[in-house]
Amino acid sequence: MNVRQTIGWNVRRLRVAKGLSQERLALETGIDRSYVGRVERGSENVTVATLEAMAAVLEVEVKALFDPVETPDSPPPSLPSGRKRKTG
Rank of each mutant, 00 (worst) to 15 (best):
N2L: 13
N2P: 14
N2V: 03
V3L: 15
R4Y: 02
R4T: 02
T6S: 08
I7W: 00
I7R: 06
I7A: 07
G8T: 05
W9S: 10
V11W: 04
R12S: 13
R15K: 12
R15A: 09
V16Y: 02
V16Q: 02
V16M: 06
V16D: 03
A17L: 06
K18C: 13
L20N: 07
L20G: 04
S21T: 15
Q22G: 15
E23V: 13
E23D: 13
A26K: 00
A26S: 02
E28T: 03
T29S: 15
T29M: 13
T29I: 07
G30A: 11
I31L: 14
D32Q: 14
S34I: 07
Y35S: 11
V36L: 09
V39S: 07
V39D: 08
E40F: 03
E40A: 09
G42Q: 02
E44L: 11
N45A: 13
N45E: 06
V46L: 10
T47N: 10
V48R: 14
T50P: 10
L51W: 00
E52R: 15
A53H: 03
A55F: 03
A55E: 01
A55I: 01
A56W: 00
A56K: 15
V57G: 10
L58M: 05
V60M: 07
V60N: 03
E61A: 12
V62W: 01
V62A: 11
K63N: 08
K63Q: 09
A64I: 00
D67F: 00
P68N: 03
E70N: 04
E70D: 07
E70Y: 00
E70R: 10
T71P: 02
P75Q: 07
P75D: 05
P75S: 07
P76C: 06
P76Y: 00
P77R: 14
L79G: 05
S81T: 08
R83I: 00
T87K: 15
T87I: 09
T87P: 08
G88P: 12
G88A: 14
G88R: 11
G88L: 13
